[in-house]
Design a protein around this nucleic acid. Structure first.
Length: 482
RNA sequence: GCCGCCAUCGUCUAGUGGCCUAGGACGGUUGAUUCUCAAUCAACAAACCGAGGGUUCGAAUCCCUCUGGCGGCACCA
């Protein structure tokens, strides 16, 4: 059997790694790992007009943050280097020319103006927008060299611009088997004579993927559902080159709550956003895994390693799922608590226990003292779902409140203040003393606690009050009260 | 418009002809706990399995039609 090699082919046209790409990356990675194969990253930067500076680096960073390592790629190389399409231009040109020689492709000199006029016409006549085959039929325009000569003879210095188009058969159907959807076929007459080499010498996606996937010996193409309708073009390309096509699996597209394709307008899509919010990479990966696939034991929480053991690509659900941020938040909270509270049952768990502390420390770039974070953590951990919520919950430990959620009832507060001044500084003693004082003053202890809370923390919601005061210390507490 | 993919609680899903009076998780509601909020525990509501036809003794599960949603139809990926 052929070695398993999977890949993702992101294009550096966005701010960061798209969460949908992270999803396909995860599946590709898992499939490679469970078959002792390789997972490759290839950068498809053939669209210079949409190129975003620094995007590639950020994509790679996000992937590594997620814990999805690649065996070969633009940064770490590999046997099929280079892994960036803009560095492989000569290869595509050579293969495109080969197709022309074999009469499976042709030069096209149509101007953008002619093409748009053609499309307008087609639209007016309610026809499918499709290249009309103008240059496919014109014999004299077979070769760009000849044409260039003519231009020079005519006094022009520049050679005429051209593209290379795929010569799609006019009859028959193209069929392929999708690993998770079964057989899918398209009528050839409906397939456009796709441009495969642009006038700037760059390949289009269609030529680029096919050539590179073949050359890089990719065995499984696992990509988004949006590619289904262009797959027949790729199949045709494989056929014309005389290559064996890979195994295809089209993953369902992630959706917005309104069921449209996941977009940045309606949902946070950049992986960096999840990091900035304080989601843990393990939780993001775990959530992604549970989308469209269920652990055979019905488990919701599991590691990527466990997934590799039991994952089955064929069991992927084909319905496009809505991305549920709420469920991710729940899962993130589970991860936070799970790694924190695990008692020292064994060494690995203790290590995990200390992890959240340093994660919070790193998350705030050292703004908060690590020792204090550690002390406050047990009070706060079950009240936050992301690292980013720590500040809101525990900020008062580090800084006196500047604003108060509501005005303070002085009468109630005075009871607390007077009691605490003479109190032993541990929460049991404080509780007992405050309750007694409240009773004596014919006040509800509950209300006294609330005033105290607002006065010390500025908020009506927070971690257990007396335990917090214990940590804060008598001096600081009393200062805040006065 | 044409082509394609898809269709079970609000959401993610289990279910592959009888074990389904359709199971789990998130979210929701109620209660217990309680100095707030959480966490935790208990319980409840929530899909007549998109609609209509078949096939079968029997269908969420197989077939057909329709409808709906989504995707694609670029010298973008």
């Amino acid at each position: 059997m052929k070695p398993v090699r999977t890949r993702i082919a992101p294009s550096p046209t966005g701010e960061n790694l798209h969460i949908g790409n992270a999803y396909t990356a995860l599946i590709n990675y898992v499939v490679a790992r469970q078959n002792n194969g390789q997972f490759i990253i290839r950068i498809e930067d053939t669209d210079r007009t949409r190129f975003v500076e620094g995007s590639e680096t950020r994509i790679l960073e996000s992937l590594s943050w997620l814990g999805i390592p690649h065996d070969e790629g633009p940064d770490n190389g590999g046997p099929f280097t280079p892994y960036r399409q803009s560095d492989r231009l000569a290869i595509y040109k050579q293969y495109a020319e080969e197709l022309v020689k074999k009469d499976h492709a042709y030069y096209c000199f149509c101007t953008p103006e002619r093409l748009s006029a053609m499309r307008k016409d087609q639209e007016a006549r309610h026809e499918a927008p499709k290249y009309d085959g103008h240059c496919r039929k014109v014999e004299s325009r077979k070769s760009p060299a000849r044409n260039a000569t003519q231009s020079v003879a005519g006094g022009k210095v520049e050679s005429e611009k051209y593209v290379i188009r795929l010569k799609v058969p006019e009859e028959g159907t193209t069929t392929f088997t999708d690993l998770i959807r079964g057989e899918i076929s398209f009528e050839n007459k409906l397939i456009d004579d796709q441009v495969i080499l642009k006038s700037d010498g760059y390949p289009t996606y269609h030529l680029g993927v096919v050539v590179d996937d073949h050359l890089m010996e990719i065995s499984h193409i696992i990509r988004g559902e949006e590619w289904i309708s262009s797959t027949p073009k790729h199949i045709l390309l494989y056929k014309f080159f005389g290559w064996e096509p890979p195994i295809y699996a089209h993953m369902p597209l992630l959706r917005n709550p309104d069921k449209s394709k996941l977009s940045k307008r309606k949902n946070p899509v950049w992986v960096s956003w999840y990091k900035e919010q304080g989601f843990l990479p393990e939780a993001v990966v775990n959530y992604l895994a549970t989308i469209a696939w269920t652990h055979p034991d019905g488990k919701e929480l599991f590691t990527i390693l466990e997934m590799i053991r039991v994952f089955d690509l064929k069991k992927i659900q084909t319905t496009a799922p809505v991305f549920d941020l709420e469920k991710l938040r729940w899962m993130n909270g589970e991860y936070l608590r799970r790694s924190q509270k695990s008692p020292a049952r064994n060494a690995t768990q203790s290590v995990a226990g200390g992890k959240v502390k340093s994660q919070i420390f790193d998350f705030y770039h050292g703004k908060y003292d690590e020792a204090i974070i550690e002390k406050t953590l047990s009070l706060v951990i079950e009240r936050i779902k992301t690292l980013g919520e720590y500040e809101m919950m525990a900020g008062f430990f580090f800084e006196r409140p500047k604003v108060f959620e509501r005005p303070i009832n002085k009468k109630l507060l005075t009871i607390a203040q007077e009691t605490l001044e003479t109190c032993i500084w541990n929460h049991d003693a404080m509780e007992k003393a405050i309750r007694e004082a409240a009773d004596k003053a014919k006040m509800k202890a509950k209300d006294v606690f609330m005033e105290l809370r607002v006065a010390v923390t500025g908020k009506t919601v927070g971690p257990p009050l007396l335990e917090s005061l214990e940590l804060l210390g008598k001096e600081e507490t009393l200062t805040r009260l006065s």
